[in-house]
């Protein structure tokens, strides 16, 4: 821990909002959304109370993993402008409280999922939490510039968990949903890393632009964007969805590809506004929301008999 907080701050009980901030609410919103889409797009039905519980468990698990991540990285967070106002580096929370909060949320989410929904969904949830907190945060992130490629798997679990909560088994479709987010994460995150790379360099995190340089990073963004086109459309190819999803997914992926071309074909100088990178990053978030929404729309249309 780098900074000792003033005594008066530590003596005060931590504001509950800081515990909330520890769960990374903005990341959680994407997790809840993709989990919900996995749940809604799965064939079959689930009681609304149990469906709500499944999504709650995914959210609690993500929150617990986020809290453990902030506990483990508080010294790094203190050194980066984007993260130094987080509860632990800012001295508003005792690190052990954050650790206990993270563990409690994680255990609660897995146990509740197991009891209310089933132990297969609970097992995948447990794996995703451990994957994020241990394999990604502790092991890969400080060691390899491929950290977020492999770490992206942690964020790819929620739609799979939502799906399995309904069906109770793992088929090709939930694996494809997993693969889509897995392929989406590197271009999404590297676009961000390109315009905030100075911060990561400062705390010694081997982000791709820092270690391999921006030319290599930009090339790899392109590779993943190309791969995303067939993988995002694969649920349609295997007959898991109708043409509504298929057409929307191809349109979205081609737009994603079109936005990654200017990112891939240029080199930025110091003081560059980084407009193409920021645009790609912003679109990548919209892309994932729209793609998973299309999955649900496709399923609803099929139920209503509108399938193309």
């Amino acid at each position: 821990m780098t900074t000792a907080a003033p005594i008066t701050k530590q003596a005060l009980p931590t504001d509950w909002r800081d515990f909330y901030a520890l769960t990374k609410p903005r990341v959680m919103s994407l997790v809840i959304f993709t989990g919900l889409c996995g749940l809604l797009a799965a064939p079959g039905s689930i009681n609304p109370v149990l469906g709500f519980t499944a999504i709650l468990c995914i959210a609690l698990g993500a929150g617990g993993a986020g809290a453990l991540n902030q506990w483990l990285e508080s010294d790094l967070d203190a050194g980066m402008k984007r993260t130094q106002k987080r509860p632990i580096p800012a001295g508003r929370m005792d690190p052990t409280n954050a650790r206990d909060f993270g563990i409690a949320l994680s255990v609660l989410s897995v146990c509740l999922m197991g009891i209310a929904i089933g132990w297969l969904a609970a097992s995948i949830l447990l794996v995703s939490i451990l994957y994020y907190a241990i394999i990604y945060t502790m092991w890969l992130k400080p060691r390899t510039p491929q950290n977020i490629v492999i770490g992206g798997a942690a964020g790819a679990f929620p739609p799979m968990i939502g799906w399995v909560a309904v069906t109770g088994d793992i088929t090709l479709m939930p694996v494809l949903l997993f693969a889509i987010i897995f392929m989406w994460t590197p271009p999404h995150f590297w676009a961000l890393a390109l315009f905030i790379k100075s911060d990561y360099a400062k705390v010694g995190i081997p982000m791709m632009p820092v270690v391999r340089g921006q030319a290599s990073t930009r090339r790899q963004i392109m590779v993943y964007s190309v791969l995303l086109v067939p993988i995002a459309a694969a649920p349609w190819f295997i007959g898991g969805t109708g043409a509504i999803y298929g057409i929307i997914s191809i349109a979205l992926s081609l737009a994603f590809l079109a936005l990654s071309v200017p990112v891939a074909t240029r080199i930025s100088e110091d003081g560059d506004a980084m407009k193409p990178e920021k645009r790609l990053f912003a679109f990548s978030i919209l892309y994932l929301f729209a793609l998973f929404a299309a999955l649900v729309v496709d399923r609803v249309a099929a139920y209503q008999g509108f399938a193309l």
Binding site: T8, A11, L12, P13, T14, D15, W16
Partner: peptide, 16 residues
């Protein structure tokens, strides 16, 4: 603890 600090302490305790 000053009265202000005590008031803040109570406020946080209560909201929690």
């Amino acid at each position: 603890m000053t009265p202000e600090e005590l008031a803040e302490f109570r406020r946080r305790q209560k909201s929690r």
